[in-house]
């Protein structure tokens, strides 16, 4: 699905040059939810922006379904961290969600239906006629998720999507993400600095090391069945994995017993 090989990126040139990514190899299978976690300044966002085609990396290659990414790919959507700057305040919630659908060749009625459908999935069907700024932060982020869902991308990028909401809302949005991915069979790349979150939502957790970013670890999350905010988080495997990811994020050696 997504093949990243030897990806590197350097901002600027000369003595002030800053290497954000130093050669990353990553491959994501169809339908997988991969969490990228790492300390701040490890190039997580650079990685995401490269995949989204928002910047042209200085080295390496990104293939999406075998096609090199050099501008924003056709069936890719992004949920940004800062919902208030990503939603358009001059449009209603429904218009925000349906705006990108014109390219999908849908007429007005179909666009409206798709938007309502997506809003329903995030539990905001009632808010369609409202404006984003009339909603709480968590609800606004739901609108961005609905916009991405209505767009029906095969790859969804989420850049610290729950970083600006309170803890309770954060858990709700995590569960919402897990629920909707089931409906759409999307591949999701989720960037976060929250170790617990990465283990809770991810099928796989990829840990980036501090700058220049490289891959410090790649762990498969083998947690049982539908995840639950209480029981999953007390599961021994969850506890083991978060400790493991925590050590990797802090740049410590992998624990021998957990390295298997």
């Amino acid at each position: 699905m997504l093949e990243i090989s030897n990806l590197s990126h350097t901002y600027g040139s000369g003595p002030s040059a800053h290497t954000a990514l130093g050669g990353i190899d990553l491959s994501v299978a169809e339908g997988e939810l991969v969490c990228i976690v790492g300390p701040s300044g490890c190039g997580k966002s650079t990685l995401l922006r490269s995949v989204a085609g928002l910047i042209t990396p200085t080295g390496g290659r990104i293939l999406l379904k075998g096609v090199p990414v050099n501008q924003t790919p056709d069936d890719l959507a992004v949920v940004f961290q800062d919902y208030s700057r990503s939603l358009f305040p001059w449009m209603s919630v429904a218009d925000n969600v349906s705006l990108p659908l014109r390219r999908r060749g849908q007429d007005k009625r179909q666009r409206r239906e798709s938007a309502m459908d997506a809003l329903e999935q995030v539990g905001l069907a009632d808010a369609a006629a409202k404006y984003p700024w009339q909603l709480s932060g968590g609800m606004q982020q739901r609108v961005s998720i609905a916009r991405a869902l209505a767009y029906r991308p095969s790859l969804l990028l989420m850049d610290e999507p729950f970083g600006s909401v309170d803890a309770q809302t954060r858990e709700d949005l995590e569960d919402l993400t897990l629920r909707v991915r089931g409906h759409h069979n999307m591949t999701i790349l989720l960037i976060t600095h929250d170790i617990d979150e990465s283990v809770y939502v991810g099928d796989r957790v990829v840990v980036l090391s501090k700058s220049p970013g490289g891959i410090a670890g790649d762990l498969r999350v083998g947690l049982p069945g539908p995840r639950d905010q209480i029981t999953t988080r007390e599961h021994p495997e969850f506890v083991r994995l978060r400790a493991e990811v925590g050590r990797l994020v802090r740049g410590m050696r992998s624990h021998p017993a957990a390295a298997s």
Binding site: G53, L54, T72, V78, F80, D82, R85, S86, L99, R103
Partner: peptide, 17 residues
Amino acid sequence: DRQHIETARVFRLSRSQ
């Protein structure tokens, strides 16, 4: 806002949009 422009790019809005 740069993020608005980026959102427009990501969702590949047309020039007129």
